[in-house]
């Protein structure tokens, strides 16, 4: 049930991860797995997309993969 979720997909949580180190979309999705947040796959994708649009993180390619990151 959602009340038992131990991870919350919030703008602040995403911001903290991206300040710590550059991450791919897959890296971020791993941090907010549906079984831990209680969200559906579709909700996770939609909410994370909205958060990333708001944060508008910097992007760079590392090992040919696009990574997002933020500076403080």
């Amino acid at each position: 049930t959602p009340s038992s979720s131990d991870v919350q997909l919030t703008e602040e949580a995403v911001r903290r991860y991206l300040i710590r180190k550059p991450m791919t979309t897959k890296d971020l999705l791993k941090k907010f797995q549906t079984k831990r947040t209680g969200l559906s796959s579709e909700q996770t994708v939609n909410v994370l997309a909205q958060i990333l649009k708001r944060l508008n993180p910097e992007r760079k390619n590392i090992n040919d993969k696009m990574h997002f990151y933020l500076t403080e």
């Binding site: 791919t24 979309t25 897959k26 999705l29 791993k30 796959s41 997309a49 649009k53």
Partner: peptide, 20 residues
């Protein structure tokens, strides 16, 4: 599963590509 993770990553990137 990893294939579901791949699908989610692809869907997320598609959403963001419209924006970028």
């Amino acid at each position: 599963s990893s294939s579901e993770a791949d699908e989610m990553a692809a869907a997320l990137e598609a959403e963001l590509n419209d924006f970028m």
